[in-house]
Structure formats: structure tokens, C-alpha cells
Design a protein around this nucleic acid. Structure first.
Length: 572
RNA sequence: GACUUGGUAGCUCAGCUGGUAGAGCACCUCACUUUUAAUGAGGUGGUCCUGGGUUCGAAUCCCAGCCAGGUCACCA
């Protein structure tokens, strides 16, 4: 028990120990640092600044974020959900009587930056004109035991000591949000985007639904799924990689338009633009085609951009992007011809492979015609589309869920929306011919067997059964929500737009090293013990011994004492 | 996965060819009743990411590993 106590104490920094000490001093004064009572807040920092009234009585609450103490008076900043406001603590205002404890002890000595406090006071303006709350009474609402990072802004608006280390910011997003208002703003915009899309769809009568996240067959996209296991059914289940096939089942079931914000999971690599879980929005509307969906998409995005940023324009890195509709529509063949000079129309697989080789694009025998075209597009064209552009009419082979093009059986009625060289949306005239769909699934299976990792290796027979009951002509679209919000908030990294991006687990620091435990176990048997004897018993090398015994004495588990000229080790 | 940069106090960072670990802010003590990066004086605070190696001596050099960022590849 004792060991545990000392070790845990060792891990606390001086600042943390001081705050714990303050905690017990507060309790000694009869102050509960974590009171249960409701605190009757009637204002926010934002409201106070917007509708300022000299002398108005207000009750606010928030975190203490900075303090400027000048003896018997002090200015501080209180931060609530809306921002910060200056508060003024004056000893004689807070303690009108003889007892000045509340100011001298509680406020000056026992409060810390980061503590939540409630304040009753009156509005006034300082000599410099700063809108301020004159504190008449205050109450500790919650004590902070860990010190926050403290970025400060100087007179020129320059930020000093900003909390910037990405690892710490992502692992401790709570701290990031407290001290970095611009980070909070990103997530406010994220939610605005979701709300904007919802209202756009709802106004048009489309219906928000929920479909399974645990699926027996992971369909609707080509991606490696996470596998889990259901105990009582004793079957494998997969975390969804897409929700497409379920939403189409609902169109079969008779809904005119359904949409879902779908948390998807893909067991693939992580990088600046990929997180294992991410959010897609998928919408399906019956009796429409992909031409209609392009109109719908550009109107949707213009609306969303304006709702989020107040303008259709957005800055992304060095690019200025304008989401104002309409967007250019370019077929894949036109795009390839424009950027490579090669016309793919009517060419055989071998001719295209030859062309790709001449463009120095890596190809292999597992690649079919569609895959080759996709490679050429990805390599030579994609990056050129900065302003929102619809790329249309993808090769059939790449699009197993998409209806064949009405004018060309080698193509499909599909578009992707490119922004800054990246895909933001993907849409089809949905394939609703059950026999064609079955053949496409089988072709995918064959591609998968041929070694194409992107091809789908599962056939969802229940989905085919649904199609056999009849699905009306339907157009569907998926939008990568994380990617879209990256564009709208000018963030190059997906981690900046997710509250809690996936990270490798933090390693727990061991309380005692193996060598320290070895020494400690000997001490438990023989205590005190001569230093030389102890060292011999451990059998440790000089270096290891030195390190281990210093570790123990430092954490005050053991101490070395000199008695009669002999060094003796004993536990503390 | 490859390459690359980094990990030193609560935060931001410095630390040269190896020689007793530093600064600013924060924190603690004192002074200061309208300041705003408040101010003045004094002080405390370190597993230099981890583990090996070289060396009389390693934050520094070498090897291996962990974590993170970036670039590229792969992948939606």
C-alpha cells in the first residue's frame, strides 16, 4: 500500500501537488470544491458584451482563464461556452465586513486558472473602457487539479506559448478545445454543415433513416472491413463500410427519398485524409437520374457553404474555391483526352494498356479496361480539377452498382464531384435491373479471384432479392462529410475535423522498473540491509544498480543512510 | 510500407565540436484597490521518449525500439 502511495505521488508534478493541497485547504475552510447544487446562471459572456447595460446585475459561470492580481483588487477572465469576459475582484466589494478571507485566502490563494467559478456581479466599464463584471459574490463550482496550457495574446494580437503539439492536442482534445478557440470554431462549423444538409433534405421531403452498422455482409463499397463476432448467433459480423445497399432496400420498400449520415469503418491505412471511422452522407431519390442529381448536388453544396461560412467561397491552402452553382460537367473520356491527348473511346483493353505504359503509368495483368482508365485518370487528370467539377460517365467495370449508360454500354451513369483534385461526392443512376446486378456481382467476384483487391468478394443475395421485387429508377449520392468539412474549414488533415481522431494507445508508464522491483522485494525480507550486501544480492551490473537504487531513493520508496561509516538501505 | 523531421520544466522553446540542464510564461513568497502579454523583488520546479552501446564522463555520438508530424507509395 505504502509503495503505491509513494509511486503515485512521484508521478504528480509540483504544480499538481500544489493544487491538491489547495483542495484540502478549501475543504478545511468549509468550502466544497465540487458542489452538487444547481448554479443559477442567467447570462453568457457573449450576451453581456452584446447588450451591455451599466450597473446591470448578472449571474455567470465559467472557467477562470487568466488573472492580474494587484493587491486588494484583481482582474481576471472568465471563459464560458460563448467566449470570455473580464471580471473584476475587489476585496472590499466581495468582503464588506471585517473578514477578508474570501478574497485574501479563497480568491487569491486557493483559486487557480482552470477552476470553474460562478459569479454574481454588476456590469461596468473600466477606465480603459473594457466591459467588465464587478464581482459581488463568487462561488467555486469545480476545482481543476491539472494546469491548463496557457496561450496568451499580446497587444499586437500575436499568440505566445500556443498549445500546438498535434499529438497532445488530439490525445487531449478537451484541453485543446478549452485553450484554442479556433479549434472549437471548426467543430461548430462541422455541426452547422450537418444541420444545413438535414434542413436542405427535409425541406424537400426526404426522410432521414438509420440502417445497420453491424452487417453480415459488408457491401456497397470496395474496402476491407472490421470483423467482429456475435456470440449468441455465433456468426461473424462486419462493421459497415457503406450503407448503400440498405438505403436501396428502403427505396424498394416505397420511400421516395431516404438519407443517412453514416458512420463507416474501414480497416485500412491511416494518414492525413483517412481515419478508420469516418462519416459519409448517402441519399437516394426515386424517379431521378444522375443528371438530376448533379443539379441537386451543386445546389446543396452552394447552400451548405453559405450556411457554414456565410459565403459560397472557401479558401483551401493556396486555392480559392467557389461552391456557387453550376459546376462544369466533364466526361471521363474528355478529361483524359484533355490532359493526355489520348482518346479512349472505342479502344480495346490492350490499346489502353499500351497507352498507359507510354504515359509511364504502372500497370499489371490483373487490371481490366476500367481499372486502366481509372489509373490514367487518377494519375494524369484528377489533380487538375480545383474548382468544383463533375466528372461523368465512368467505365462499367469500376461501378458494379451503377446503371449502364443510356448511350454507351461500356460506360455507366456515374459522376464524381472533384474539388481541389479530391473526390467529394460520388453518385449514380442506380442499377435496378436485378439480373444485370447479379451478373455485375459475379464479375466482381471474378475480378477479386483474379487478384484485384478493390473488387468486392461478397455477393449480397438478399439485396438481389430486394431488387427482384422491383426498385423504381433511382439516383443516389454519397458525400464524404469529413472531406467536405476539411474544404470548408481550410484543414488539410482529417484529424483536425474529428473530435477524437484514432491514435495509437498511449503507453502506460510503469510504476517500478524490473530492477527496482528486484531491490524492493529483497528489502521486504531484509530491512534495513547493508548497501553492499543488497547490491550483491541483486546481481545487477554497476550501471543498472545505480539507476535502480537512485530511482527508489528519488521516489522515496527507499533511503540510503550512513551509520557508523556503513551505508545502509532501508524502506522509508 | 519507404523516406524525413521532431520528442528537454505545466506550456512554448534554446542547449555549439561530449564536461555540473537553461530562458520566457505559468507556479510559490512578498509588495501593489480600474488592469489587460499588468508591474517590481525573491524562489521552487527535470525519467532530457525508452532500452542498449561507446566514453573517465552522454540531453548531445552510435545501434535498436516507441510515439507523433510531414512527404511519397498503397488505399477511398
Amino acid at each position: 500500500m505504502q509503495t503505491y502511495f509513494y509511486i503515485t505521488h512521484m508521478q504528480l508534478s509540483e504544480l499538481e501537488l500544489i493544487r491538491r493541497e489547495k483542495l484540502s485547504q478549501l475543504r478545511a475552510l468549509g468550502i466544497n470544491p465540487y458542489p452538487a447544487d444547481l448554479y443559477p446562471v442567467d447570462n453568457t459572456s457573449k450576451k453581456l458584451k452584446e447588450s451591455f447595460e451599466e450597473g446591470k446585475k448578472v449571474i455567470i459561470a465559467g472557467r477562470l482563464m487568466s488573472r492580474r492580481i494587484q493587491g486588494k483588487a484583481s482582474f481576471a477572465e472568465l471563459q464560458d461556452a460563448d467566449g470570455k469576459i473580464q471580471v473584476y475582484f475587489n476585496r472590499d466589494e466581495i468582503c464588506p465586513g471585517e473578514d477578508k478571507t474570501l478574497y485574501n485566502e479563497v480568491y487569491k490563494k486557493l483559486l487557480d486558472i482552470g477552476d470553474f467559478i460562478g459569479i454574481e456581479g454588476e456590469l461596468f466599464k473600466t477606465q480603459v473602457g473594457e466591459k467588465t463584471v464587478m464581482v459581488k459574490n463568487f462561488m467555486l463550482l469545480s476545482k481543476a487539479l491539472k494546469p491548463l496550457p496557457q496561450p496568451r495574446v499580446d497587444a499586437d494580437g500575436k499568440v505566445h506559448d500556443a498549445f500546438t503539439d498535434p499529438e497532445q492536442r488530439y490525445r487531449q482534445r478537451y484541453a485543446d478545445l478549452v485553450v484554442n478557440p479556433h479549434v472549437k470554431e471548426v467543430f461548430v462549423k462541422r455541426t452547422k454543415l450537418f444541420n444545413a444538409m438535414r434542413s436542405f433534405f427535409n425541406e424537400r421531403g426526404y426522410f432521414e433513416v438509420e440502417t445497420p452498422i453491424l452487417q453480415p455482409i459488408p457491401g456497397g463499397a470496395a474496402a476491407k472491413p472490421f470483423v467482429t463476432h456475435h456470440n449468441s448467433l455465433d456468426i461473424p459480423l462486419y462493421m459497415r463500410i457503406a450503407n448503400e445497399l440498405y438505403l436501396k432496400r428502403l427505396i424498394v420498400g416505397g420511400f421516395d427519398g431516404v438519407y443517412e449520415f453514416s458512420k463507416n469503418f474501414r480497416n485500412e491505412g491511416m494518414d492525413r485524409t483517412h481515419n478508420p471511422e469516418f462519416t459519409a452522407m448517402e441519399i437516394y431519390v426515386s424517379y431521378k437520374d444522375y443528371n438530376w442529381m448533379m443539379d441537386f448536388c451543386e445546389q446543396l453544396l452552394e447552400f451548405c457553404a453559405k450556411e457554414v461560412n456565410g459565403t459560397s467561397k472557401a479558401t483551401f491552402g493556396k486555392h480559392e474555391v467557389d461552391f456557387k452553382a453550376p459546376y462544369p460537367r466533364v466526361t471521363m473520356a474528355q478529361a483524359i483526352e484533355k490532359y493526355t491527348g489520348f482518346d479512349i473511346t472505342g479502344k480495346t483493353e490492350d490499346e489502353i494498356r499500351e497507352a498507359a505504359l507510354q504515359m509511364k503509368i504502372e500497370v499489371d495483368d490483373s487490371m481490366g479496361k476500367g481499372k486502366l482508365i481509372d489509373e490514367i485518370f487518377g494519375e494524369k487528370c484528377e489533380a487538375n480539377f480545383i474548382q468544383p467539377t463533375f466528372i461523368t460517365d465512368y467505365p462499367k467495370e469500376m461501378s458494379p452498382l451503377c446503371k449502364e449508360h443510356r448511350d454507351n454500354p461500356e460506360l455507366t451513369e456515374r459522376f464524381e464531384l472533384m474539388v481541389c483534385g479530391k473526390e467529394v461526392a460520388n453518385a449514380y443512376s442506380e442499377l435496378n435491373d436485378p439480373i444485370d446486378q447479379r451478373e455485375r456481382f459475379e464479375a466482381q467476384l471474378e475480378l477479386a479471384n483474379r487478384g484485384d483487391e478493390e473488387a468486392t468478394a461478397f455477393i449480397d443475395y438478399d439485396f438481389l432479392r430486394a431488387l427482384e421485387y422491383g426498385m423504381p429508377p433511382t439516383s443516389g449520392m454519397g458525400i464524404g462529410m469529413d472531406r467536405l468539412i476539411m474544404f470548408l474549414t481550410n484543414n488539410a488533415s482529417i484529424q483536425e475535423v474529428l473530435f477524437f481522431p484514432q491514435m495509437r494507445p498511449e503507453k502506460k508508464k510503469v510504476d517500478m522498473t524490473e530492477d527496482e522491483k528486484l531491490i524492493f522485494n529483497i528489502l521486504k525480507v531484509e530491512n534495513p540491509i547493508a548497501l553492499e550486501a543488497l547490491k550483491t544480492k541483486t546481481g545487477l551490473s554497476n550501471k543498472k544498480w545505480d539507476k535502480a537504487i537512485k530511482g527508489l531513493t528519488k521516489s522515496k520508496v527507499a533511503s540510503v543512510e550512513k551509520t557508523d561509516g556503513n551505508l545502509v538501505v532501508k524502506t522509508s
